[in-house]
């Protein structure tokens, strides 16, 4: 029997139409979750550097818990565990978005903190010496500069979160990996299909990288 290795390109490309339905789910979960995670990140990141320890402590607790536990456990907890507390089921999409939100939120909190703290003390002092209030100094001087510095690490987190959604096939949400699994179950072309799944992730993350590079380039003006 001949065992020459064959990569079946026809099978690979043929799987694309079966995988494409996963893309909207992958995008919805990752970008929906990241949007919420960004809001969480701003709130907790600023709490983390607040002068009040009663704001600081809950932020530290949140960040440590969600950075220190695996996202797979987090999504299982939300999907299978939380319903026991809430007394009703949570749909898989909601659970996926929530998991990305709380997980990326923890990392983005640290990105926000790092960005704001990286702005030289003199910027704040100059603002205050001109009569700006602390809020105005933050809004017009500190934040715009901090945000620019946050773009690369935010992009990084975006890419990580997009890839993290692949884990959510375990709760049966119809994202890319799940679509691949369903298709493989009928065709047994695991090699070709997972290759294609990988290519589709790469297409998404690469697009995001290019977009971010554009943003960064534009942000360089005046730095």
């Amino acid at each position: 029997m001949e065992v020459t290795f064959q990569f079946d390109w026809a099978a690979a490309f043929g799987s694309i139409p079966h995988l494409l339905p996963g893309i909207p789910w992958t995008l919805l979960i990752s970008f929906g979750g990241l949007a919420i995670g960004f809001v969480i990140g701003i709130v907790f990141g600023l709490m983390r550097i607040s002068r009040s320890r009663w704001l600081r402590l809950p932020a530290i607790l949140y960040i440590e818990v969600f950075r220190g536990t695996p996202i797979l456990v987090q999504v299982l907890f939300i999907f299978y565990g939380l319903p026991q507390l809430l007394g009703g089921p949570i749909n898989a999409l909601t659970a996926g978005i929530a998991a990305i939100a709380v997980n990326s939120g923890a990392y983005i909190s640290e990105v926000v903190r790092g960005g704001v703290q990286s702005i030289e003390r003199g910027q704040r002092e100059a603002s205050l010496s001109l009569g700006l209030s602390r809020t105005q100094a933050f809004r017009y001087v500190i934040w715009p500069q901090a945000f620019r510095r946050m773009i690369p690490p935010l992009g990084n987190q975006g890419i990580i979160s997009i890839k993290d959604t692949s884990l959510f096939s375990v709760i049966g949400v119809g994202e890319l990996v799940r679509q691949g699994q369903i298709y493989i179950a009928t065709t047994f072309t695991a090699l070709e299909v997972y290759f294609m799944v990988a290519m589709l992730y790469l297409a998404i993350t690469w697009s995001l990288s290019l977009l971010l590079r554009q943003l960064e380039r534009r942000g360089l003006v005046g730095q």
């Binding site: 030289e120 100059a126 500069q145 730095q223």
Partner: peptide, 11 residues
């Protein structure tokens, strides 16, 4: 106030 390091707003 004028500072040693200028502290202009770079953005």
């Amino acid at each position: 106030m004028v500072f040693q390091q200028f502290n202009l707003f770079p953005h």
